[in-house]
Design a protein around this nucleic acid. Sequence first.
DNA 1: GCAGCGTGTTCAAGCGTTTTAGCAAAATTC
DNA 2: GAATTTTGCTAAAACGCTTGAACACGCTGC
Lengths: 359, 359
Amino acid sequence: MISQEKNSGNPGIPAVHARADSAHPVTLREVAELAGVSTATVSLVINKKKNARIADETRQRVTEAIAKLGYRPNAMAKTLVSGTSKFIGLVADGVATTPFAGQIIHGAQDEAWKHGYALLIANTEGNKDLEKDAIAMMLEYKVRGILYSTWFHRPTDVPETLREADFVLVNCFSAEAGAARAVVPDEAQGGQSATEILLREGHRRIAFINTTTPAPAKDGRLQGYKSALESAGIPFNPELVLEAYPDQEGGYGATDDLLKLKVSAVYCYNDRMAMGLYDGLRENGLSIPGDIAVVGFDNQEVIAAHLRPPLSTVSLPHYELGAAGVRMLLGLDAAPLDSAVKIACPAVERASVAVHLPA
Amino acid sequence: MISQEKNSGNPGIPAVHARADSAHPVTLREVAELAGVSTATVSLVINKKKNARIADETRQRVTEAIAKLGYRPNAMAKTLVSGTSKFIGLVADGVATTPFAGQIIHGAQDEAWKHGYALLIANTEGNKDLEKDAIAMMLEYKVRGILYSTWFHRPTDVPETLREADFVLVNCFSAEAGAARAVVPDEAQGGQSATEILLREGHRRIAFINTTTPAPAKDGRLQGYKSALESAGIPFNPELVLEAYPDQEGGYGATDDLLKLKVSAVYCYNDRMAMGLYDGLRENGLSIPGDIAVVGFDNQEVIAAHLRPPLSTVSLPHYELGAAGVRMLLGLDAAPLDSAVKIACPAVERASVAVHLPA
DNA sequence: GCAGCGTGTTCAAGCGTTTTAGCAAAATTC
DNA sequence: GAATTTTGCTAAAACGCTTGAACACGCTGC
């Protein structure tokens, strides 16, 4: 008569498939009882320990009991005893604001999953208090480590509490050198690729509309533009570099200045500027890429792929950043402390450049 | 001499602030020892139990010990004993594909946070195996419940294992009635609002370019268009309803047919179609909203807010969907089993309609 | 006939908390 | 000043699992 009130069912002949509706979830003990073995044995069967010797007949019985009861291991208990959880934390400052954070999440999640980790995410939208709470929460859940990410590539301060965990900066880096592992996009290579798309089609006089906003991307993308020209034996001409606010309005507004430069091609700091520029060029009766070839940067799908003509651009590798962050965290990828690891920005060629493909 | 090897520090005079680098995290026991009390007392202090009687002096000593050791409670242990975790699972089928899922995540996370819950997310990108694993993982972590979300509003099958948990469908609903709680956008009201934006400016002959793809949105948005006309005393004219593929190309391609209708305004199934239509109208030398007023649907920020002129549209309330899903899960909002709860799609008015605001 | 071995299984401690019942001392009552 | 109540704290069980040590077998070999 012991444990008669233990659970809803009668211990001898349990329901075909126990469900969440029975107040208490099925435990190892119950499986063990049904199978007529000890909990230790059940545990051994479940975890398929190589050096554990279990009779086939027993293994069978346990497996059946598990199926019959619909047993789910309690990951919390598992974690408690093993000491280290299977969580990786991801704190992001702008999941909602842009599609970019989504990509980082996706990459991190896929990679984490691959190694048996689950993602615990916190979206701070830049709120420092929230951020602190989020990190505290993650520490309490004993995460394996934390990915600290920003929605645009920038230097950042490492929150004090973050240091209590293993962490990697994603899409951002610490201003003080040697302080943190980090992974960022390779802006310079991206800028070079963008420019090369145009050079490859024979363009020699190429304008660059840079952003007015200071950022690693501003410097990097310009640097890439210069390197590409240099490799092609074209002298850098500062007059061909304009600056505008990095959105549609900015691109549109830069149209007049751009036209004065008499270039055959233009590389824009980002896709949104290119989108605005499209409008400006069209209003001036110019066709893309017939009269002028355009490339952007960021590969913001909803824009770049659907402009007419579709925009050649360079991808910000957010997915890869997330994935690489996880790998660095888990020690699978090298992760120098003194400088950020750079991830390539691959070129994406579309119809806004090839002269033989009119709109 | 007991426990001399317990940790790195000497038990009497511990380090000013213990850190993650000391192999073992600080536990309740260590705090208790330092404060010279039992673990029970420390626990009571931490959890500020109202009916616990603790001397101020003791409370003080404990608090100091906690600070000194940099103690972090172990949420796993907590969960083990309480039986239910502070997690809410969110399985999404397209975090990366669109900015929409990001909004759902954001809304869910904010609301969950408000009630002390953390979000455990899994991105399945439509992969059923991944989805099953994700749900299993969540069940093993004993989540309070699961939000099952889709990136566009649609009917869905409820995965078998999902039923083992408390769950709410977000942005989707079960084909079989009475089977699941769900929260979806109110497409009909949205369609009505969109149409009303145009009616309010005096337009009487309004075209609707619907999608060719069957979906709840297709029916709902048309329904809303009809209701709005009816309320305004305008008979519904089926000839004014066109259909096109719901992207930029579709909108662009619909231009000619639209122009034949001789309408003064058009309501597009979504913003992307409107974006394509902008190009088509511009090529025909027509100005927006001077010659023709345009409204979209979805409020896809990166498009709608930055077209020229900015596009009037109706918001898909993804943030609210996520938040409402959490509230329904926690039993804070009513959640009927027999029909989905509908969330309003608020109108967002911009310059693509008001006749007195030329581009 | 027994030491030794391989096999299959269980014992029991422990992971870091929470929480209830209960104990000792101090304070209050009459 | 004994009885009672209040106050401050602790012991110990429990949560569900893992794991190394131990145990009970039946065999083998000598």
